[in-house]
């Protein structure tokens, strides 16, 4: 049986993180599971957690009248879900729904925010890793925005 701590240490998001900080993070971590079609969070709710995905698949969705839910992106094994816990006003901007049975480690954002304030080394590592995730998502979004497969290119 894997403990949250060993799962965290092996996850690509926390690759090469100082074991001291892993232990620190594990203090805010909780193993969790979502069944297919279960909402992990919904737009507008308070963002108290983020999720380190161990397996499964999560869709980030936005609801538009008449068009219904539109999937913006899917996130799976080895990736991380959610950064609104980090950035005020700490509310989710999108819906997140497991579209497959999904295992994850939930990290308590409130707990982590205060730990990051106390321990700047931890804060820097966490921010650095999120910055990298946000950057690659932004890059991917920009490419989607270009609609490169559209007839005009």
């Amino acid at each position: 049986m894997q403990t949250p701590e060993s799962s965290l240490a092996e996850h690509p998001f926390l690759k090469d993180l100082n074991p001291r900080l892993i232990t620190f993070l594990a203090g805010c971590a909780l193993s969790t599971q979502f069944h297919k079609n279960q909402f992990i969070f919904r737009e507008g709710e308070e963002a108290n957690y983020f999720y380190i995905i161990l397996d499964g698949k999560v869709a980030i969705e936005l609801f538009a009248p008449e068009r219904g839910s539109i999937t913006i992106q899917t996130i799976g094994e080895g990736e991380v879900l959610g950064w609104s816990w980090l950035i005020p006003p700490h509310r989710w901007r999108f819906d997140a729904r497991a579209i497959e049975s999904t295992r994850a480690i939930a990290l308590d954002g409130r707990c982590l925010r205060s730990k990051c304030e106390e321990d700047h080394e931890l804060g820097y590592e966490v921010l650095k890793r999120f910055a990298s995730v946000i950057t690659s998502r932004l890059e991917a979004t920009r490419l989607q925005l270009l609609d490169v497969y559209g007839a005009h290119v």
Binding site: K57, A59, E61, R67, G68, S69, I70, T71, I72, Q73, T74, G76, E77, G78, R97, I99, E100, S136, A140, L143, Q144, D147, Y149
Partner: peptide, 20 residues
């Protein structure tokens, strides 16, 4: 690049698949 909610596959640009 974009899908309605009935799509069970991945959504995102093809480059993101390389890491998977």
């Amino acid at each position: 690049d974009a899908a309605a909610e009935n799509w069970r596959g991945d959504v995102g640009v093809v480059t993101t698949l390389i890491r998977k």
